[in-house]
């Protein structure tokens, strides 16, 4: 099963432990995490369900292509990492 991990910068605001999920896309994987931790959703996604402008999601070290509908596929051994996009110094 793919794993979802969150930056420690997020842990400052609320618990965001790593989780193993079933989803076949980035969106489905994140949705599974948010189902059990609803407060986390608004920190990662905007009101329309797209990635927040300054949040990055990588799958196995590569930035996801679809930041709006989160349709990038994920496989059983993939690692999804959610972190803050660095902007400025």
């Amino acid at each position: 099963m793919p794993t979802v991990s969150f930056t420690s910068a997020l842990q400052r605001f609320l618990p965001a432990p790593s989780a193993e999920v079933k989803g076949a896309t980035v969106g489905a994987a994140l949705a599974e995490v948010f189902a059990s931790r609803p407060a986390l959703r608004g920190y990662v996604l905007d009101d329309q369900g797209a990635l927040r402008r300054h949040v990055a999601v990588y799958v196995n070290g590569q930035a996801v292509r679809d930041r709006v509908r989160l349709t990038d596929p994920v496989g059983p051994r993939d690692e999804i990492y959610v972190f803050q996009a660095l902007s400025g110094g």
Partner: peptide, 8 residues
């Protein structure tokens, strides 16, 4: 108004 993580 969190820079990365939105309004709270």
């Amino acid at each position: 108004d969190l820079g990365h993580f939105g309004a709270k």
